[in-house]
Amino acid sequence: MASQTLQSVPAEPSPARHEMSPEDAARRDAEGQAYFDKVMAEDSRIEPRDWMPPAYRKTLLRQISQHAHSEIIGMQPEANWISRAPSLKRKAILMAKVQDEAGHGLYLYSAAETLGQPRDAMMQDLMSGKAKYSSIFNYPARTWADMGAIGWMVDGAAIANQVPLCRASFGPYGRAMVRVCKEESFHQRQGFEILLELSHGTPEQKQMAQDAVNRWYAPALMMFGPPDDDSPNSKQSMAWNIKRFSNDELRNRFVGMMMEQVKVLGLTLPDKDIRFNEETKKWEHGPLDWEEFHEVIAGRGQCNAQRLERRREAHQNGAWVREAAAAYAKKQARKQAEKETAA
């Protein structure tokens, strides 16, 4: 589909690259690049077996692993309320949701592994603080209503971001996103339902819902990333068909959706400047505190230390279990081999 004339160049060369003459290596890169360019022009897909520019590989690896880390760290604020969920049905839904996030982390780590980095190495980068994750998860989940606001706004923003990623040029990422988005849309609906129930409940419950919406609104908008004129990587990602819409474009679209839905909830968004610009046909919102955004990314958010420590603790406490499983698998394999030799 991608090309009639140009052929994919395998990512793993044979003979190995260091055994090639410089001329052969250069010719190979040129052929690979030509195929890659053709795929980009045709808006088709690159697969793990294909040659790809080193910068493309690096960008994807960073983005997919960050996305996976966000799912894993993102389990924590919601896991915080599993034990206290106020009804058994809500408890079941919340458990299933947090479990889904672990599943998303798994798909995404697997997609990233196809680019050549093992899960364990990515995990180490997360725990050492070298790799980033979405800064939204460094805010605390203070009340039950936060389960609603996170589902409705945070997962809502994630969907707005991720639906276009279903068409990302890297095959494994795009395919993972299809499944992730299906589950995320269920998550968003359950968040909306929590807020709806609260806003139609007692005055205290409604207040709890409003307070959560007030606290999560700005951080959710900032999930789309810095404004376009301050987003250095966006342009290249768009040229590579990874990103389809600019940060501001997605953010504005999201604000419009929130504005419609918040009316159904009977709540308000804490932003007096939201309006639909008739000239540009786009939604606009008030100023966001980008200084806070950069502070949280730099590690100075409310929960940065807590989230990472919890991940490290779980990882360290589980080390002996993983070692045992590996040792057992090895022994079983040896037994199996002995059996086969004997037979």
Binding site: A96, A102, A314, N317, A325
Partner: peptide, 27 residues
């Protein structure tokens, strides 16, 4: 349910979460 986000492996976060969900359903 306490194990979800604290298990030794992601796969066990999911497995123990599944068992917790089953038990909650029975309850």
């Amino acid at each position: 349910g306490h194990w979800i986000s604290r298990a030794p492996e992601l796969e066990e976060d999911i497995a123990l979460g599944n068992i917790a969900l089953d038990q909650l359903g029975h309850a």
